[in-house]
Write a protein that binds this DNA or RNA. Structure first.
Lengths: 349, 349
DNA sequence: CAATTAAGTGTGCTCGACAACATTTCTGCC
DNA sequence: GGCAGAAATGTTGTCGAGCACACTTAATTG
């Protein structure tokens, strides 16, 4: 398991040759005779040479700049934990010459996003981690980065396959299935349930649809006979959710479970008509208001997307790539954490 | 946020003094005039000097040896993921001179544990990460380590407070509460439920009791009127669990939910009498047999203790301590992951 | 007052990887 | 054979921290 650590000098000695030549072989920069090349290659393989990353990093002595673009946590608390994750990763890698800078944009429109992108590009960073909130704009930005050979990672949303860089997030379709399973566990067979797409100012439409699809897929795979209806709760109605819900349940009195596809599950707190007060609800995201709703019993389960970890990993992947030449994992799917009133505390920190 | 990085040479230049003196100030090894000391200290504070850990590590050029003691995964598959976690951490830190060696012991008695401890101590390691399966023996071992100034971390079980070293694990009492909540969510109020302590060859007694206590605490905090009974399923009976369960339910026909405090929940697969076939069950640990039981619907929820992560963190903490002089966190409680048939996949890997 | 000791300071080498630069060896050609 | 020029190889300095050793003052004593 643990072996002696060999240095380039060791190898040079073993091969009866100088370190310069060994280095040339390792880095494939030619000017080496076939004989020497083969000899060294054989030794390298034999001892399974692992270069000392510490020494390598010290020699390079380069500082890398890394920008993280994400929605302003002040406007949507969902993003607050990301900042913490970014800082944690930043602390970890600053010794290795990686400088991390977080930049916020206004998620309510594309204008701020575009402006921020431009600004970041002007800094000529070595790497960029960003949240691809707006599809077209993100695509354009990613392309520019690739052209400028800027390292790339996205989290909490993906770009189409084949795009360079890393994607860190959750399998949304599967998380819909998890929600389906949870409601099914709470309700049993042959009930009527509703998918609620509650107010998202910006284009979470794709997200929401993916989740709904997973949810429906789960129920379709069962022998049972559950009915699923979909209800959208647009922005203009969130001032009076109680009213909307009253209408909804008047129309669908037999709905016995709700799946809220966004982080707005807390809106149901105090907004469910008496006739349906204790009805099972599954929602998303550990934001403060949702936790309150968990504790008051309005929401039964939350699905945690771990934004902190997503941001942390995004920064870490690029940092390790810069500092240690590690290759960037193409895709990293995080666990779909199921949270209730008794275990949420450990996911906060 | 990101500042220029200063080196000792920079500071020496700024203070108009040599780097030797700066170094003496930083490491407090005296032989410095008051004047020089104050000048340098002021500069250090002013620029918030952070030593280059890479260079430091390179210079020290020491290799640290770290042993991990855990039960043999061949005898209990619960521990298998730990090996993976250990390897992951090992890979990560081998560049920094940390050599990790995993050693297995037979969990069925203290003899093997003691022998392994002795053997490990003989190797004079710099650090030890171990699973304190046997209380008295673990205590003695920990003391010896402290005396020999060996770095210490435990996972999946704790030693009494005040002991040096780190503890990584789960809040077992709270995990019992989580189980209670889950059964409550599935069953509703005023039911009769049972806590099953299913066969553990070795002293998991404390673990099981902690979990039961949490479980009962949860129900006691409710307004409802749930009855809880406890049933032990000893080793000799696991050959015929069906028989035991038949007797159990004959005696307690009104039990409508089960909480299995060990990883042996899968024993119920095919062992529940027809009268109670679909009864809700909450168990522990993502071992293969339990996952099968999850998928077949015998087990509804599993609580995941993330042994992989526990082992990974244990090794990481000590490694960071050796390689970067980071201080070891005293206690790290991992999330209590709730797992059902739809999300278990992400916790495996 | 020279000699000894202590206190404070500076210099230079090491760790391992790496690459620029210097040097040697080989090849072809007149 | 001699010589240019390419090809191969060797040497050395760098990155930043850290420490042993050498060195310079200042203080003390016979």
């Amino acid at each position: 398991m643990s072996k002696k650590k060999y240095t380039i000098a060791d190898i040079a000695y073993m091969a009866g040759i100088s370190k310069g030549t060994v280095d040339r072989v390792i880095h494939k920069r030619g000017k080496v005779s076939k004989k020497a090349y083969e000899k060294i290659t054989r030794i390298l393989k034999e001892i399974d040479y692992q270069p000392n990353l510490v020494a390598r990093n010290l020699k390079k002595n380069k500082t890398y700049t890394l920008y993280v673009l994400l929605p302003d946590p002040e406007q949507d608390p969902y993003w607050a934990p990301c900042v913490e994750g970014i800082n944690a990763a930043s602390r970890e890698f600053q010794s290795f010459g990686v400088m991390v800078e977080a930049v916020f944009f206004d998620p309510s429109g594309t204008k701020s996003f575009n402006a921020t992108c431009k600004q970041v590009l002007k800094q000529e960073p070595d790497g960029v981690v960003f949240v691809p909130l707006f599809y077209q704009e993100s695509l354009a930005f990613a392309e520019k980065c690739v052209k400028k050979k800027i390292g790339l990672a996205t989290f909490n949303g993906s770009l189409p396959e084949g795009q360079a860089g890393s994607f860190i997030g959750q399998d949304l379709h599967q998380s819909g299935r998890v929600a389906g399973k949870l409601l099914h566990q709470l309700l049993g067979d042959d009930k009527k349930v509703a998918v609620i797409h509650a107010d998202e100012a910006y284009q979470n439409a794709i997200h929401m649809q993916e989740k709904e699809k997973g949810f429906r897929d789960y129920y379709e795979g069962l022998k049972g006979n559950t009915t699923i209806i979909t209800q959208t709760l647009p922005h203009k109605d969130i001032k009076n959710v109680a009213q909307s819900m009253k209408h909804f349940f008047a129309e669908h009195p037999d709905v016995s479970g709700l799946f809220v596809t966004t982080s707005k599950g807390y809106l149901l707190d105090g907004a469910l008509p008496e006739t349906h007060a204790g009805i099972p609800v599954v929602g998303y995201d550990l934001i403060e208001k949702n936790i309150k709703a968990l504790e008051s019993g309005v929401i039964d389960f939350l699905i945690h997307q771990n934004p902190r970890q997503q941001a942390y990993l995004g920064v870490s992947y690029l940092s390790e790539y810069f500092a240690f030449d590690k290759k960037i994992p193409g895709k990293k799917l995080l666990p779909i954490d199921i949270v209730n009133s008794e275990n949420y505390i450990h996911y906060l920190e």
